Computed example of a mutant assay.
Amino acid sequence: MDVSAAGNHDFDFGKEFLERVSQDLSYPLLCANAEVSLPKASILSTSSGDIGFIGLTSSDLLASSNYRVDRRHALPVQRVEPNIPSMADELKRAGARAVVVLLHDGTDWRFSGDKYEARPQRLFAKIQGWEEVVDLVVGGDTLGRYYGSIGRMKFVQPWPFGTEIALVDFEFRRSEVCTRFAAVPVKGSEEWDGFGADFINEARQDVLGTLPHSLTAYSGGRAPLAEFMAECIFAATAADISIAYVACGQPASDGIFAYLGSGSVTRLQIAQLTPWTTHEICTSEVTQAESNKLCGLANAARSHRSRAWAMHTSGSSRDILSIATTSGAATHVIAETIGRELEWKRSGETSFEGVRTVLGRVDRSRILGR
């Protein structure tokens, strides 16, 4: 790595934590649109000329604050978006022959039938004022893919999760910068042997059971994988309602953003499907009216492009119902959905144990269908 920009999840453990750990990085981590002690911009020297970089995190960190393990970690203040053309001019006066904006935002998208459809209009309206002084914008965050231009300014956003690399070539001429780009698929993989490798290997070796058939979560469609996880939480508790989500585990190039294949299921696979939690199961109480509000989370017609929710119920008609979910993001989203904070208690069980229970049943026909 030579340079990077802070993303919204870089702040999951709070502003002070990021400021502290960024000092140990061997490259600059940039952030120009939040009040945090990171550099706003940097110039990288190359044999062909200097390149200036500006880093922008999500423009609304609070909007994604539910998707953290613990919301108590303080986020940085965001007041006014920086003047990117002015910053780019300053970098060029300092010797940069080209300016790149590393933007933690990207193209919107949807699936129309079985076809991925990028919708860059919102993003391009946001960045079109940069075209006279910025040479390249590198996008991300939305898990989509798009390559394009606004006038002379190029935009690249490769498929996420290391599936594709955007290769950009600058050719510096006397009075202009010629920019070419290509999408390079990534083939093969190597086992991670850096920090955390021992935890990954331990989780990979912990087999929870055998799944008879594959389960998926489809962008904007059905999510039997989320329904399976809700059943697993239900099986690990005596609650009236269980709620679960699954999140992006692969590029959505085929419409599927989360997948669990048939055969052996490991703790690592479940951990990858459900981020932003310690996987401890928490319980609380809601009213019947509040449980009706929560049904909207599991509405397939309104599902998020990269997250799917499901709800499993006992069918109880009591006025006060017990509810179970995983710690972290799910408890935050449930509270936001019903409009009040809940008092959550740790049950002593985990979602991993729930998976082990469901997969261990003799009657496999109870496992949710495709």
Rank of each mutant, 00 (worst) to 15 (best):
A98V: 10
R68M: 04
W109S: 03
K92F: 01
L62G: 09
I51M: 07
V77F: 11
P120S: 09
V36F: 00
Q128T: 12
C31V: 06
A41D: 08
D70Q: 06
V99P: 00
S59D: 13
L25M: 08
E35S: 13
D60F: 12
V36K: 00
L91K: 04
L102G: 02
G129D: 13
D24T: 13
F124R: 12
L38T: 04
R122C: 05
P39G: 05
R68N: 02
H73Q: 04
A74L: 14
D60M: 09
P85T: 08
L25G: 05
R68L: 01
T107L: 03
L102E: 00
V101I: 13
G95T: 08
L29M: 12
G106T: 06
D114G: 15
F111G: 05
D50C: 00
S48R: 13
S26D: 09
S45C: 11
D89A: 14
G95A: 08
E131R: 15
L30C: 06
S47M: 07
D60P: 07
A34H: 05
P76G: 03
Q128S: 14
V77I: 13
R71F: 00
P28L: 03
D105L: 07
E81C: 10
N33E: 06
R68T: 07
V21F: 09
Q23F: 09
D24P: 01
R110T: 14
S65H: 13
S58I: 11
G113F: 04
